[in-house]
Nucleic acid binder design. Structure first.
Length: 955
RNA sequence: GCAGGGGUGGCAGAGCCUGGCCAAAUGCGACGGGCUUAGGACCCGCUUCCUUAUCGGAUGCGAGAGUUCAAAUCUCUCCCCCUGCACCA
């Protein structure tokens, strides 16, 4: 048994002592790997291993490929999470305390965690410990925290630079808002961590007949306006007459709406009025100009929208039902005829058997029927009909009203919005789509439009164009996530850069704000190149001109030395270090960051740096599943990193998590999967130990086979490592290698030189993924240097022997076939087979086989053979009877598609089958003879095919 | 809704770009056998159905249609699942 932890501790100590991962400039081509900032408010679980581990594998691989590699690490503490964390601990939040205990945080430490900075310091230590324990090849001298003053100087410089380039703008912005605390609230500030979902809706103005006032309706579907036949209000609710904004007009909306919309618009209430009073009014449809009544709607909720609903009975099941209900209740309903505005095949998305696709004049009614509802059905069923109708109509519907003919609904919607807004009959408002959402203080959240908000303008056309241009030269791994980046680049628009609270750097343009925490980490990777050189420099000396010089190469070092007080040598070295390290980089992160951090990273680099320092490669990782499920604290299946390391060892863990899945897909952590890996490590160890007692000798058939497999493997693995397809590499290295070694031995392989060559290369290729085991094996192979600094193996193309591999495949298939035949015979004759004859096909069949492989059209092939046999047939075949050839062709016509070219002659097939006959005999448990077709007396002889000997069983 | 990714055998997961060696790698599981006092580990076999002295047939890679001598793979239409949608790390 391998003692993983002992072995790993030993090698980690050796690496530290030799300082082999401390990056310093030398003649070699540099390569810098950076992974996303770990956030310093919790210790690590195994999920973190994914991104950082992949980065480490790349760093180690590139080192072996001859690069001078730097893998730095720093910590993120900016933003609100750590503040919220501290607050929760101040309140002795039992859930959080339970989580911390799960990570073995001692009680006395939890006691001290009321200070955000202490929290960050504590967890940074823990995370460092974890990263060290899994053997990351990190240069720790460059570690920093995103809240330290030196880094703040850097971020200030960056933000000022963006501003001077005209990339910051100021404007208004909707946010979730707690009216009680007067604060913006995000997900972290709400009960049950609900993200406030803010959506835009269209507010439509309906002028009231005979009054200088209007109703306001909120709607997602302004394009149905031509179909509006009336308005609905809640006759029991209280409404207010009010002024909205500066237009001096009077509007009627529900009282609740007025108070909530007050956070978006300037609203001044004039008087209250009961819903009942409104029923006496009528108003004008702003699109059609027709006069429409105001009716009581049973479903109208004064808290939703404006409390006034525009009614489209043809297309909204609730509206249709409300009118029908009114009619039966005896309410004096004026004549209302639903007006259809969209044509659609009703029930198109339903199961074809139940949904009758048809067009109707009152689709709303048909949709009620489609879900099995009628006017007396409960609200939830009507809701279902509404959803179905909305979905089908906006997906497949075609507008049928004047001016919008044949438009899709989304198209018509935009057009209608334009018309309404232009005429002053509509404006956009924000609503909380997932209301009610509550602040942690218990108050219901509203939408507030804040002004004075600073943005980074990622919508800037010129900037976007440059980024699109730059993106063409960036390698994205896996390549399939390229598209996501493309849409992210084009979608990114205004991005708030400052916020009122949180840890971080003060916003230099307005000191009341803090720089938003994603915006402060878009260029920081360049800070790694200089941070170790300014360790002892007073942060106050890090003036803009210093960064201008170090990062941008602007100005004169002497002048800057004078103005900043930093010594000349340091300034010079910073510039050189930046230039040296920042040319060849790989950035690693998770898929959820494509739409913010990673794309912002590209944007900021393009805006600020010279072209040669722009991003070169971005790697996107999937996450880690634990026992098939996403790890979540509530499920309690979160596995602390250190627990897993202690239990399984770092290398098996690295293997399963980092290399267990393709980049973008999730990898699976379970004890089973780790155990499988351990078993294979043990096997390789055993071979390495036993190797010493084996001997060298002449190369046999199976030796060539193993060399062939090895050299093919080197190529496959190298190519996979280049694009970080670690799943392929790991399967090849562990699973397939063990299979190959086992086969080698069972086929009688025993050459110590061959095995040593094989293990040697295998260990080298294992080194990036399982570095500790590789070091240990490297010693067992009698080397005394670090495998981490060795050269990656090169493929010897001449040793890749397709023919030998194919021959082994034939041996395998022959065994399978023979086994099958034997089973049939056993069953049929109820006797144990005594002997097996393998009958090898004649050479003429091989020639014909190859003709068939080349020409897949049987008719054409037969024509060719009969027509000009002299020109297409080979020497042996030419002399033969054409009928015999044609028989063979016809006999195999059906499987012509699967016939492959072969270059194995009968003599060769005969000889390697004879060589393997001992093995075949052992596998089958009976005597085996190998004979030529022409020499066999068996009637089955003629059934033999190239690579597929006919099998004759004697009882 | 918009954007991105995906739907393959009991499960996980390759293959799809570059169509035919694909009833489909590999791992896990299940089953049968060996080893063992026994269990674990390990080794061997087996794992769609029918047929059969292998080499045959049917069904089959979300559904349907098409292109082709040939489709898991190409094209089209549809259905379903996952992720993200902003000031939040």
């Amino acid at each position: 048994m391998i003692n993983y932890r002992d072995l790993e501790n030993k090698w980690q100590a050796e690496w530290d002592k030799a300082k082999i991962f401390e990056g310093s400039m030398n003649q070699k081509q540099s390569y810098m790997v950076t992974a996303a900032f770990p956030y310093a408010n919790a210790p690590q679980h195994i999920g973190h291993l994914r991104v950082f581990g992949t980065a480490d594998v790349l760093a180690r691989y590139k080192r072996m490929k001859g690069f001078n590699v730097l893998y730095p690490m720093a910590f993120h503490a900016t933003g609100t999470p750590i503040l919220a964390f501290a607050k929760r601990l101040q309140n002795k939040d039992p859930e959080l305390i339970r989580e911390l205990k799960m990570f073995h945080v001692p009680d006395e430490e939890i006691e001290k965690m009321t200070d955000p900075v202490y929290i960050a310091e504590y967890f940074i230590k823990e995370i460092e410990k974890g990263m060290h324990a899994v053997g990351f090849s990190i240069d720790w001298r460059r570690s920093f925290v995103s809240i330290e003053p030196k880094f703040s100087k850097f971020v200030e410089w960056q933000i000022n630079l963006l501003n001077s380039k005209g990339l910051l703008t100021k404007g208004e912005h909707p946010v979730g808002w707690c009216p009680n605390e007067n604060n913006a609230v995000g997900m972290h500030d709400t009960k049950h961590d609900v993200e406030p979902d803010i959506e835009k809706e269209m507010a439509v103005r309906f002028e009231i007949e005979g009054k200088d006032a209007s109703f306001i309706c909120a709607t997602y579907r302004p394009e149905t306006l031509p179909g509006v036949t009336n308005l609905f209000v809640n006759e029991k609710a209280v409404y207010v007459a009010c002024r909205i904004g500066e237009d001096g007009k009077t509007y009627y909306i529900s009282k609740e709406a007025a108070s909530r919309l007050g956070y978006q618009f300037k609203i001044e209430a004039i008087s209250e009025i009961n819903g009942e009073e409104l029923l006496k009014m009528s108003c004008t449809n702003p699109f059609t100009g027709l006069k429409i009544p105001v009716l009581p709607g049973f479903f109208v909720n004064p808290v939703v929208g404006t409390g006034v609903v525009m009614s489209v009975p043809a297309h909204a099941p609730f509206d249709y039902v409300a009118i029908e209900k009114l009619k039966t209740s005896g309410y004096p309903v004026p004549e209302i005829k639903p007006v259809k505005v969209v044509d659609v095949e009703i029930g198109r998305s339903l199961d074809k058997k139940t949904g009758q696709a048809q067009v109707s004049d009152i689709p709303a009614l048909e949709y009620l029927k489609a879900v099995g509802a009628d006017v007396s059905s409960p609200d939830n069923l009507i809701e279902q009909a509404t959803k179905l109708e909305y979905k089908e109509e906006s997906h497949w519907g075609k507008m049928s009203v004047g001016g919008f003919e044949n438009m899709s609904e989304p198209e018509a919607r935009e057009k209608m919005k334009g018309i309404l807004m232009q005429k002053g009959n509509g404006f956009e408002m924000h609503i909380l789509a997932n209301r009610p959402v509550y602040c942690r203080c218990g108050t219901e959240i509203v939408v507030k439009v804040v002004d004075n908000q600073w943005f980074i303008n990622y919508g800037n056309a010129e900037w976007k164009k440059n980024v699109n241009e730059a993106f063409k030269d960036i390698t994205i791994l896996p390549p399939k996530s390229r598209k996501a980046f493309e849409s992210a680049i084009n979608w990114l628009d205004l991005r708030a850069v400052a916020r009122a609270q949180g840890l971080g750097t003060r916003f230099p343009i307005d000191n009341n704000y803090i720089i938003e925490s994603l915006s402060d980490s878009t260029l920081y990777m360049s800070f790694y190149t200089i941070v170790n050189l300014i360790r002892d420099t007073d942060p106050e000396k890090l003036k803009p001109e210093f960064f201008d010089y170090a990062i941008l190469g602007k100005g004169e070092a002497e002048v800057i030395a004078k103005s900043t007080g930093i010594d000349y040598e340091t300034i010079k070295k910073c510039r050189e270090s930046f230039q040296y390290w920042y040319t060849n980089t790989s950035r690693h992160s998770g898929p959820d960051l494509i739409f913010n951090h990673l794309t912002m990273y590209i944007y900021n680099h393009v805006a600020i740096l010279e072209k040669k320092y722009w991003p070169k490669q971005i790697v996107v990782n999937g996450s880690v599943l634990s026992e098939g499920e996403k790890m979540s604290k509530s499920l309690g299946n979160i596995v602390p990193l250190m627990d897993a390391v202690e239990k399984h060892g770092a290398d098996p863990l690295r293997f399963v998590i980092v290399a267990g899945a393709d980049l973008f897909s999730d990898s699976e952590y379970s004890d089973d999967s780790v155990n499988g890996i351990k078993e294979r490590f043990e096997y390789i160890f055993k071979i390495a130990e036993n190797m010493k007692s084996m001997q060298a000798g002449q190369l046999e058939h199976i030796d060539y086979w193993l060399y062939s497999k090895l050299n093919r493997k080197i190529d496959t693995v190298s190519k996979s490592m280049d694009i970080l397809e670690l799943r392929v590499a790991s399967t090849e290295l562990l699973y397939n290698s063990v299979l190959e070694l086992k086969r080698y031995f069972s086929r009688g392989g025993k050459n110590s030189i061959v095995i040593k060559d094989y293990i040697n290369s295998l260990v080298l290729m294992l080194a990036p993924i399982s570095p500790h085991i590789a070091e240990e094996l490297w010693r067992m192979l009698d080397y005394d240097n670090f495998v981490a600094l060795e050269k990656w193996p090169e493929q010897d193309q001449s040793m890749v022997n397709e023919k030998v591999e194919r021959q082994e495949d034939i041996v395998d298939r022959t065994i399978d076939d023979a086994r099958e035949v034997m089973n049939i015979v056993r069953k049929k004759e109820n006797k144990e087979p005594r002997e097996i004859n393998l009958i090898v096909a004649e050479d003429w069949k091989r020639e014909v086989n190859n003709l068939m492989a080349a020409e897949k059209n049987v008719g054409k092939l037969i024509e060719n053979i009969t027509g000009n046999k002299d020109s297409i047939l080979g020497e042996t075949t030419k002399k033969m009877n054409v009928e015999m050839i044609l028989d063979y062709v016809k006999g195999n016509a059906k499987r012509i598609g699967s016939i492959q070219h072969t270059d194995i002659t009968q003599e060769e097939e005969l000889s390697f089958l004879k060589e393997a006959s001992g093995y075949v005999s052992e596998m089958l448990g009976c005597k085996v003879n190998v004979v030529k077709e022409s020499e066999s007396k068996s009637e089955r002889a003629k059934r033999s095919m190239p690579g597929k000997p006919s099998i004759d069983v004697s009882l």
